[in-house]
């Protein structure tokens, strides 16, 4: 009986003694994380479209983007080495993180569409950051740019590149980027977009709304599939007018692979759109994935930390 009593005491005190040594219990179980969700996208661009990401304070992002010529069809094939000989658009940009939430940038692109020789000023503001505890379920970032063309004015007043005054050279984009990261591998984005072009061809539209969707699916820490697609809302009368003249507008779709090498981020992608800036690829895409009118392109981002 005494033996039993000692046993009971020993058994009951043993866990108590162990609890004393297992100090981890003091800090409770891992509580729900309240901090913000980071790295929804790896880069500030999905492919054609913006991601919600802004640069960290003091980071300089040097970006080069390229879109080549049609892979197939009458302009592609082996004679242009599947479009490699023709580049439809090239963009070189410097973007800088003023704060962790505010990015500003300048760029020069060749331009593809009615206007070329484009200079861009852009701003991007992270308004909301998704949180792990879902107190804020989505991330919201605002993007805007103003683009001016440096090209010589056309002689004919009917041309969209005829500039009666300076403001005719301007186009603008306003966009909200709403994102959510699901777990560790999948991120999705919805991009309500507004494009304004001061001067357009007859029956083209000055103001255009579009809805973009995009996503990123991570295969590993360094490789991901990226996709984005835009649905521009063009008036039927405008569509009909251009269709009669043999011009059909298509919705831009980009599909690519994103590779993070540790300093550079590469996007190797295929798009039917020829232009790089929102101001052009949303309202002016007239090439289709059919007929070989898609192209390969790349975005390269190299970030430098200037913060000391």
């Amino acid at each position: 009986m005494l033996y039993l009593r000692i046993m009971t005491v020993a058994l009951l005190t043993a866990p108590a003694a162990m609890a004393q040594d297992d100090l981890s219990a003091m800090f409770g179980k891992d509580s729900v994380r309240r901090d913000g969700v980071t790295s929804t996208f790896k880069s500030t661009r999905i492919i054609n479209g913006q991601s919600n990401e802004t640069l960290a304070k003091g980071d300089l992002d040097f970006r080069v983007a390229h879109r080549f010529g049609d892979i197939g069809g009458s302009d592609g094939g082996s004679k242009t080495f599947f479009g490699m000989d023709n580049s439809t658009d090239i963009r070189i940009a410097f973007e800088y993180g003023i704060t962790d939430r505010l990015t500003a940038g300048i760029s020069r692109s060749k331009g593809s569409g009615s206007l070329s020789q484009l200079y861009e000023v852009l701003g991007k503001l992270k308004v909301l950051q998704q949180t792990h505890d879902n107190r804020i379920p989505v991330g919201v970032t605002l993007f805007g740019n103003a683009v001016v063309t440096g090209m010589k004015s056309a002689a004919e007043e009917e041309e969209p590149s005829y500039f009666g005054n300076f403001s005719h050279r301007m186009t603008y984009t306003g966009q909200a980027i709403i994102t959510r990261k699901f777990g560790n591998a999948l991120s999705l984005a919805v991009l309500p977009t507004y494009i304004h072009r001061n001067r357009v061809a007859f029956m083209d539209v000055n103001d255009m709304f579009a809805l973009g969707i995009g996503g990123r699916l991570r295969f590993s820490n360094r490789v991901a599939l990226v996709v984005d697609y835009f649905l521009p809302f063009r008036e039927q009368a405008s569509k009909d007018y251009f269709a009669e003249r043999g011009v059909k507008f298509y919705n831009p779709l980009g599909v690519g692979v994103e590779i993070d090498t540790g300093g550079h981020i590469f996007h190797l992608n295929f798009t039917n759109s020829t232009a790089i800036l929102e101001n052009q690829f949303i309202p002016e895409t007239t090439s289709t994935w059919r007929n070989g009118q898609f192209r390969w392109g790349f975005n390269i981002s190299r970030r430098f930390s200037l913060a000391k």
């Binding site: 003694a17 297992d22 981890s24 800090f27 901090d35 980071t38 930390s305």
Partner: peptide, 24 residues
Amino acid sequence: ALNIKTKAVYFKVQINTFQFKKKL
């Protein structure tokens, strides 16, 4: 936490609280 009798030691840190000069 430290138990001065049993001399047990415990440390725990949340990885993403580490701050770097370079955010990248």
